[in-house]
């Protein structure tokens, strides 16, 4: 099928292409254009150059705060999620009865939508905090740790599955040989299992970084940015800028473009790292 008559080519690609142009391509280009304009309804856009980008940082501290909050959140979640996930994967690849049921349970929260997860945890966290006379909106750090716990609950099972696949791909002979040489469980873990699952570590690290940066639903449901936008992450800050106040759509779009560039940079670094690792092995 190296060559295909044009009409067939159109038949196979047109539906996807059309939808893609409407849903993504035009909105994407229009989004970049609008970030350099002031607008309310798209048709009334007037060119303002980089003004929106400057306003995003100077108008108020929200964007900077959201950026710092997001970076801190990403670092803490990535470390915790990966440590817990690896720990669980390590336990569940040993001969323990019922590993399949455990895997099923740990993976389950991953399928529940962010809005619903947010309200589940709001109930639990506020139920604890009420004993101290406060709730999750009292201080941004409560929202921060609430989100960290929620994100762990959601993502650990997912990452665990990837680590399990990594650990199971290590050949048994390697571990048997080490045992014959007198290595104990800790030495096997440190010198064989951990180095052998490094590709899985790369995948999981970037999946968690990307998901942490793009977190929106959970943030909206758990704290909605309270108190006073202090617990808003980047995605929520962009949303609030867009729809919270009339007249700041241009600034919102400029923030969105910067948000896109941050996420794209993370993905490109990931691709670089996974590629170079593939060459090594």
């Amino acid at each position: 099928m190296q060559k295909m008559p044009k009409k067939y080519y159109v038949f196979f690609t047109l539906p996807t292409l059309l939808a893609f142009v409407i849903a993504f391509f035009i909105p994407f280009l229009a989004g970049i254009y609008l970030s350099f304009t002031e607008f309310r309804t798209v048709t009334d856009a007037s060119w303002v150059g980089f003004n929106n980008y400057i306003l995003a940082f100077t108008d108020d501290q929200n964007f900077i705060n959201a950026l710092i909050f997001t970076i801190k959140f990403a670092i803490v979640s990535v470390v915790l999620i990966n440590v817990f996930a690896f720990f669980l994967a390590y336990l569940l690849t040993r001969s323990i009865p019922g590993t399949n049921i455990f895997r099923t349970i740990f993976f389950m929260p991953n399928l529940i939508g962010g809005i619903i997860l947010g309200y589940i945890w709001q109930l639990l966290i506020n139920g604890i905090l009420i004993n101290f006379g406060v709730d999750i909106t009292f201080d941004a750090s409560y929202g921060f740790w609430g989100l960290v716990v929620l994100m762990n609950w959601q993502m650990v099972g997912y990452m665990m599955i990837i680590y399990i696949a990594g650990i199971q791909s290590i050949s048994n002979e390697l571990i048997e040989a080490a045992k014959i040489d007198g290595a104990n469980a800790w030495q096997i873990l440190k010198s064989i299992i951990v180095p052998m699952v490094m590709p899985a570590v790369t995948i999981c690290t970037f999946l968690t970084v990307a998901n942490s940066f793009k977190l929106f639903d959970q943030n909206l449901a758990l704290t909605a940015g309270a108190p006073d936008r202090a617990s808003a992450m980047l995605a929520l800050d962009i949303f609030t800028t867009f729809y919270g106040r009339i007249g700041s759509e241009g600034v919102g779009q400029a923030k969105a473009v910067m948000f896109f560039m941050i996420v794209a940079a993370i993905v490109l670094i990931q691709l670089r790292l996974t590629r170079s690792r593939e060459v090594e092995s």
Binding site: T13, L17, F20, I22, A23, F24, F25, I26, P27, F28, A30, G31, L34, T41, V42, F213, K214, F216, A235, I238, F239, F242, E249, G252, Q253, A256, V257, F259, F260, V263, A264, V267
Partner: peptide
């Protein structure tokens, strides 16, 4: 077309949410 489609994977929804809903 392939690279354009793959590129769209890394674009977060907030980048296009406003323009897409107008569209």
């Amino acid at each position: 077309l392939y690279y354009l489609l793959v590129f769209s994977m890394i674009v977060p929804f907030q980048m296009v949410m406003f323009t897409m809903s107008k569209m």
